[in-house]
Write a protein that binds this DNA or RNA. Structure first.
Length: 197
DNA sequence: TTGGCGATTGGCT
DNA sequence: GCCAATCGCCAAT
């Protein structure tokens, strides 16, 4: 029913991949059932970006960023929230795209239970919220997202009509770079409204 | 060993 | 809109 995307379809460039992923689909196959979401917001962390965890080289935490295109980089932030990224360059380079928000599609009830009854609009609006809704944690770090398994990217079902860009959210270093991408008009975006006109 | 800080969230004003 | 919670990581001691 849901088919993993082939690696050859993914642009091997961080900024291009961040734009490409808008409108794509993330699929989570768990013991509780299948949950899926349409990607509506991403951020690029390209080569040489001082805000990237890969900026200082392959330190232990960021090692998964140095895997090949299409693998997962998952880390814990602020002690409580996981963030999931798609590795965006060839092996040993070190760059990724953060998935910041999903439009919930299948398995709404499962996601609602995981998110303690949050409204549908808030289920996967924000990087930590979407990992909670999809039950993604550090055990997924390094997983190939282009292969059938518990978590993968699938073919686009509804292409985004209009993709816009803004500066990224929550950063101190390199905070002015306009490396956030979002689907214009989506009701499922995170961050302050003025960043999503 | 220790202290400060983070690609955030949720609750309260 | 503001702010505390929370804990792994890393740089400095």
């Amino acid at each position: 029913m849901w088919k993993p995307i082939s690696r050859a379809q993914l642009p091997a460039d961080t900024v291009e991949l961040a734009r490409f992923l808008i409108g794509g689909c993330l699929v989570r196959n768990s013991i509780e059932g299948v949950t899926t979401g349409r990607i509506v917001e991403t951020e690029a962390y390209p080569i040489g970006d001082s805000a990237s965890h890969a900026f200082k080289g392959p330190v232990p935490r960021a090692q998964a960023m140095f895997l090949n295109l299409g693998h997962a980089y998952v880390y814990l932030i602020y002690g409580s929230s996981y963030c999931v990224n798609v590795v965006s360059e060839q092996a040993e380079i070190g760059a990724a795209v953060l998935i910041r928000a999903l439009e919930p599609l299948a398995g709404i009830e499962i996601m609602t239970a995981r998110r303690r009854g949050a409204r549908r609009i808030d289920l996967a609006r924000g990087p930590g919220r979407l990992t909670a809704a999809m039950a993604i944690d550090s055990t997924f770090n390094g997983l190939d997202l282009c292969a059938a398994g518990p978590l993968f990217l699938s073919e686009h079902e509804n292409a985004a009509a209009t993709v816009k860009r803004s500066c990224r959210i929550g950063l101190t270093r390199n905070a002015d770079a306009r490396l956030r991408f979002y689907e214009a008009g989506s009701a499922f975006l995170s961050g302050p409204k003025y960043l999503s006109p």
